[in-house]
């Protein structure tokens, strides 16, 4: 599904050159559940941004469904993003001015979907996530766990085959964290590919495969015994 080949990402400021990714090779198949781990500054988030088509690599190839997207422009990437990728962030990134249903609907807003159908899909996904009774609440009125459920709902409402989660449990207590992980696992079970950055080994255990990064390199890439 995804193939990163000899990928570099270099950040340049006036004087300093920081190498965030240093020749990463990585392949992710459809239906995978990958946890990316590593210390602060090892390039996890950079990797996720590039995989998520939010950023371009400085060098190397990136095949997204056999299409080399490494040099794509923002508008080209934007088109691929909205059809294929759902995002979940540590800090939820819900829009404060919109209620739960509207936040979820936002992900469909930029697709050409008729209003009635849009509403139907939002209602379905809210049922699935167990947040239908919160539909009219504003994000500020929800607990962190509930907010992250909304974010997950938003990530999957467009039927995107790939979900990228950047420390989805980082802002949650252990109970809520576990809930969210269960949610991700069940999504994966239904066939969604998930790439997740996390610091928590116990949450990484939900994944079937763990990639360890250090100083921009992949140091280990291990499948968890089934």
């Amino acid at each position: 599904m995804l193939k990163l080949h000899d990928m570099f990402k270099v950040y340049r400021t006036d004087e300093v050159e920081t190498v965030a990714l240093n020749g990463v090779n990585l392949e992710i198949d459809q239906g995978d559940f990958v946890a990316v781990m590593g210390p602060s500054g090892c390039g996890k988030s950079t990797l996720l941004n590039i995989v998520g088509l939010l950023d371009n690599p400085s060098d190397g190839d990136y095949f997204f469904f056999d299409e080399n997207v490494a040099k794509y422009s923002e508008s080209q990437r934007s088109g691929i993003r909205k059809r294929n990728i759902g995002f979940i962030f540590q800090n939820f990134n819900l829009i404060e001015e919109l209620n739960v249903a509207e936040n979820i609907e936002l992900a469909l807003l930029y697709h050409k979907i008729p209003t009635a159908k849009r509403k139907q899909r939002v209602a379905n996904v809210m049922d699935r996530m167990g947040i239908a009774h919160r539909a009219k609440h504003m994000p500020g009125q929800l607990s962190g766990g509930q907010q992250q459920r909304v974010a997950v709902a938003r990530a999957v409402v467009g039927d995107q085959p790939l979900i990228l989660a950047d420390e989805p449990t980082g802002n949650l207590d252990s109970v809520h964290g576990q809930e969210v992980m269960e949610l991700l696992r069940s999504l994966n079970a239904e066939g969604t590919t998930i790439v997740m950055v996390t610091h928590s080994p116990s949450h990484a255990d939900y994944a079937r495969r763990t990639v360890n990064l250090f100083d921009g390199h992949v140091v280990t890439d291990s499948l968890r015994a089934a």
Partner: peptide, 11 residues
């Protein structure tokens, strides 16, 4: 907010 919308594919 803008970042989130862009991430979800807004032009």
């Amino acid at each position: 907010e803008v970042g989130m919308r862009k991430t979800m594919g807004a032009t």
